[in-house]
Design a protein around this nucleic acid. Structure first.
Lengths: 156, 156
DNA sequence: CTGGTTGCAAAACCTTTGCAAAGTC
DNA sequence: GACTTTGCAAAGGTTTTGCAACCAG
């Protein structure tokens, strides 16, 4: 919960403010607490969970402000959200981005070497002119354990 | 809207009924209209859109029944739903399944050769024992046109 | 001062669920 | 007749939005 993990809050905050200003947007005092929660969380946290962490120190900051500032972080490229399944979106620092695999049976989340996606990226770029981003949606499937379990009951 | 596209409704329906019975479930008269809408739609239709098509001929069939029967089709492997973005899930016949690319800027949906995903499938299986299914979530990114457009305004 | 940001409450959006009645095997 | 499925209405979970007050540049 306190893992700042080599991320300098002040430096990141300054970058956010600079980029917001570049777009004619403004920087309020609410940015920092939300950023702190995001950095402390180290990934895989929903907006609501981040909001709870923010409220612990700043009860006056409303949940809708958390949503709005996370959106701003995403707009300026500092953070992004990912969908692992049917639940709420999970937020990460872009600096810590990575693709996810999720098991549709047990919900396990597996993080894999981003390099594995390189060849497909190149192929999609070449074949369709498409610049893929494998972080926004997870790849669903079945983990090794669940493939074994479901072979006797699974549809087709 | 009338493209039955080589799919024999009666045969598919019989398969659905058989599989439902195999699970101790029952087959009601509502199955066929929902299946017909799904077959006619030929992919990329939301449950609500399919419901509208069902209502045109069968106004008595409730939208929740459409949801429930689509779920049943998925349970028996005849259909699946996919998420292309933040909107509602889109439904397809499994027989016509394919992976999707969606552009986060313009919303374009690109369908690519499933073979492109083969190498990654094998790699994920080997490295993580994970059986990937690239149909459930689309791969997001930017299409060629939007990459060009956003290079001057994009974050980072 | 101009106009972006906040707190609040309410709505939006898509989907699921509880229940009694109807239908299936 | 036992048990599933339906229509209906209501709720569910997550996110967005309208608005007046507030605050940053």
């Amino acid at each position: 919960v306190t893992t700042t993990d080599q991320v300098d809050i002040d430096r990141v905050l300054a970058e956010i403010v600079e980029r917001l200003h570049g777009r004619g947007l403004r920087a309020s005092a609410c940015l920092r607490p939300v950023l702190e929660a995001l950095i402390a969380a180290d990934g895989h946290r929903s907006a609501e969970e981040l909001g709870e962490e923010v409220h612990a120190r700043h009860p006056e900051i409303h949940q809708s402000t958390v949503y709005r500032n996370l959106d701003r972080f995403e707009q300026v490229g500092i953070a992004y959200h990912t969908h692992l399944g049917h639940g709420p979106a999970l937020w990460h620092l872009t600096a810590r981005s990575h693709p996810h695999l999720t098991c549709v049976s047990c919900g396990a989340v597996v993080t894999v070497d981003p390099g594995l996606f390189e060849a497909l990226s190149v192929a999609l770029q070449r074949q369709a002119g498409f610049t893929a981003d494998f972080r926004h949606f997870a790849v669903t499937g079945r983990c090794a354990a669940c493939v074994g379990l479901t072979e006797q009951t699974a549809p087709r």
